[in-house]
Simulated assay, not measured.
Amino acid sequence: MPSTLTARALLLDMDGTLVNSDAVVERVWRAWAAEHGLDGDAVIEVVHGRQGYATMALLLPDRPVEQNYADNLRLLEQEVTDTEGVVPIAGAPAFLASLRKLPHALVTSATETLARVRMGAAALPLPEVMVTAEWVSASKPDPEGFLKGAAELGFEPADCVVFEDSEAGIAAGRAAGMRVVGVGSRAAAHAPTAQVQSLEQVRVEAAADGSLVLHIA
């Protein structure tokens, strides 16, 4: 059903929300799973939304954290150089264009370098405010990234709406005290505040009082 949300600022995840990078994620993480004798499907189930080291800690809980960080760096190098199949989520170009003069930030588990590479590969403009992996001490589902995004924009958490696709990201947005618009099929199972299949179903307009009105089809 169509719905309307009102906010002061929007906080946007990248992978799966603005950029479809599933092809790269599948290639890199299935190869990693094979190295460690893990089921590729099980790995893909938990990788979305998290920083790599956090995914590894879930899957290999007895492994030293130093090895997770080392593997994370290696996989990041692969992801930065692999942009084949990276495309915008349907509606993302127009959606970001509509936010150009409105308060919004990118909040991603990717590093700044990877965020710039993937947004560039998808031909999407980078928001002026970006909270990347380097900004936080804890990966989603911890709310730290979203709370920092709100603070950078100068708004209270309750005044922000998050756009997310993953279980970890939706949990992080809720833990931050924010409403969440779930984007795509992955999000549907995790009870976001509102749900869309693509960003083509979202229209944002600025009200006279400076608030943002989200029309969700």
Results as ranks from 00 to 15, higher is better:
4 T>C: 12
6 T>H: 11
6 T>P: 02
12 L>F: 10
14 M>F: 03
14 M>T: 06
15 D>E: 11
15 D>T: 05
15 D>K: 08
15 D>A: 11
17 T>C: 09
17 T>I: 09
18 L>S: 11
20 N>P: 02
20 N>Q: 03
26 E>A: 15
28 V>W: 01
29 W>H: 10
31 A>W: 00
32 W>N: 03
32 W>V: 01
37 G>F: 00
39 D>I: 00
42 A>N: 05
45 E>D: 14
45 E>S: 03
51 Q>N: 03
52 G>Q: 05
52 G>Y: 04
53 Y>Q: 13
54 A>Y: 00
55 T>F: 00
57 A>W: 00
60 L>F: 02
61 P>F: 10
62 D>G: 14
64 P>W: 05
64 P>D: 08
65 V>R: 14
69 Y>P: 00
70 A>L: 09
70 A>K: 05
71 D>V: 12
72 N>P: 00
76 L>P: 00
77 E>N: 12
79 E>D: 07
80 V>P: 00
85 G>I: 09
89 I>D: 03
90 A>V: 13
92 A>W: 05
93 P>H: 12
95 F>Q: 15
95 F>V: 14
96 L>P: 07
102 L>F: 09
102 L>K: 11
106 L>W: 12
111 T>V: 08
112 E>W: 06
117 V>K: 08
117 V>Y: 01
117 V>W: 07
117 V>T: 15
118 R>L: 14
120 G>M: 10
120 G>I: 13
120 G>K: 07
123 A>R: 13
125 P>H: 11
126 L>S: 06
127 P>R: 08
127 P>F: 13
134 E>K: 03
136 V>W: 04
140 K>T: 13
144 E>G: 05
145 G>N: 07
146 F>V: 09
147 L>K: 02
147 L>N: 07
151 A>V: 04
152 E>T: 09
156 E>H: 08
159 D>N: 02
160 C>Y: 08
161 V>N: 05
163 F>G: 08
164 E>R: 06
164 E>N: 04
165 D>M: 07
166 S>N: 04
169 G>M: 09
169 G>V: 10
170 I>C: 04
170 I>F: 04
171 A>E: 08
171 A>Y: 01
173 G>W: 04
178 M>G: 06
178 M>P: 03
179 R>G: 13
179 R>L: 12
179 R>Q: 14
180 V>W: 03
183 V>G: 09
185 S>L: 13
186 R>D: 02
186 R>P: 02
191 A>G: 03
197 Q>G: 15
200 E>A: 13
201 Q>D: 10
202 V>Q: 08
204 V>H: 07
207 A>L: 15
208 A>P: 01
210 G>Q: 10
211 S>T: 15
213 V>T: 13
214 L>K: 03
215 H>G: 06
217 A>K: 07
217 A>F: 01
